[in-house]
Design a protein around this nucleic acid. Structure first.
Lengths: 241, 241
DNA sequence: CTAACATTTTTCCAACTGGTCAAAAATCTT
DNA sequence: AAGATTTTTGACCAGTTGGAAAAATGTTAG
């Protein structure tokens, strides 16, 4: 239930103005540009900014969000924010690369040596929990996809593809062993993504359609139950015993 | 295969400046504001603009799109475009209301007196065809949802909800008759939406993951086959005969 | 304590954007 | 063909936005 804070990765090009100015000389001299460790305040403020940016970007999209908005949510002035992330794009980039790691994790956990249905079921659960606990990340991701994934297309084509290829092999093996219906492993994975993320990305619609009565907190439990039935048996009724 | 042109509905508040200026007097006098039929050019240009706007909005979102961009795609100047749609929002509004009609149609076709599996299967097919033939509309819709459906929330809460409620009853009846596995009809519908629209909204990802070999035109056929298996039998393997 | 460095604030600006307006051009009506 | 109406254009504007500069204020290592 408790949204464990996402870990912040990539300390790379965080340092701001100062560095930039130095770049002119440093880069020209092709020196290794001493990385200078981040100060406490830098780490804290960057986290605050990234959190605020997630809030704003996920709600309005990249172009629909202004630095002012993010700064306000982060509780600082615009120039101050720009001191930590000299470019709006930079914030977005950081957010996206953190996001991808978080996003791939659940699939990675699917173990080839486990029981197919147990593994698939818990994968679905994990994804559904992510939709419930990290809807903003899900929407940010969806937004990027809708736009054609301009910022992460190469990671999608390389890392994500590799991971899915690997897991597709696992699924195929299970099918070969007769433990799983023979079907397309890639589309199988797509369908898990689609059905689970739907509850984050189309949340308004889900709530509106379920109405006051069933649109409450229980909807994720219901979804989990339904999806289990779907992926396990489909819609074919049990023959009356 | 051929994307049948969407019909343009709602001739309502299309007329521009002239009307606007007149409004001052007309509205003040609370007269019925004679609607004055649209000219040929007006109809043509509005269609061109709406088509261009669909292209641009679906790719960049509302705030990410500029009137200039739309005007350029439409092959006219910005002021000229504004002559037909005095507000950027107006274009978007029109697009959204047309969209909703198109979007509800497939579900409406699900007949209570048909065979459950035939009906569900063809509903899935129709939705999949829409994802293939009208990806821009799908993305426009997804974008609106991501943003919390600000422009169509009431139609979602009223019309869409009513329709889904109705069809949920149909599904429940089928379940009562033992023709369909007993499960949650609402989430069943959600899962059909999610799995089919995924192929339009997350198209980049689907292509990238499938790779050059399988990401081509055949992917919709594969998806259709897979989804049929999923919804019919789930992933449980057939007992060896 | 203080010099060096890190952080924050104030002020400003150029580019972009949605939209206006008057006049010119094209089209339609009679 | 003339007059009326519709359509198109070019110049323009005010508000917003991303970002730069520099001065002012804090922080910290020696």
């Amino acid at each position: 239930m408790a949204p464990k804070k996402l870990k912040v990765a990539e300390p790379s090009q965080a340092q701001a103005k100062r560095q930039h100015k130095a770049d002119a000389k440093a880069a020209a001299a092709s020196s290794p540009a001493k990385p200078r460790p981040l100060t406490r305040i830098q780490r804290e403020k960057q986290d605050i900014i990234l959190e605020a940016a997630l809030e704003v970007f996920s709600a309005h999209g990249f172009r629909g969000s202004t630095i002012d908005q993010i700064a306000e949510v982060a509780g600082m002035s615009k120039p101050n924010l720009l001191y930590y992330f000299p470019k709006k794009e930079e914030i977005h980039r950081r957010l996206m690369s953190e996001l991808l790691v978080t996003w791939l994790a659940p699939l990675e956990e699917m173990r080839a040596d486990g029981d197919p249905f147990v593994e698939i079921r818990s994968y679905i659960r994990r994804k559904l929990e992510m939709a419930r606990d990290f809807p903003r990340q899900s929407r940010l991701f969806a937004n990027e996809m809708l736009r054609g994934a301009p910022h992460i297309i190469d990671m999608i084509e390389v890392d994500l593809k590799a991971l899915v290829d690997e897991k597709a092999q696992v699924l195929l093996a299970w099918m070969d062993q007769g433990k799983l219906a023979r079907t397309d492993p890639y589309h199988l994975i797509f369908s898990i993504w689609a059905t689970t993320q739907h509850y984050a990305d189309f949340d308004v619609q889900v709530r509106a359609v379920l109405g006051k009565g069933r649109g409450g907190e229980g909807r994720f439990e219901d979804a989990a139950r339904y999806l289990e039935q779907l992926f396990l048996h489909g819609l074919t009724p049990k023959p009356r015993a």
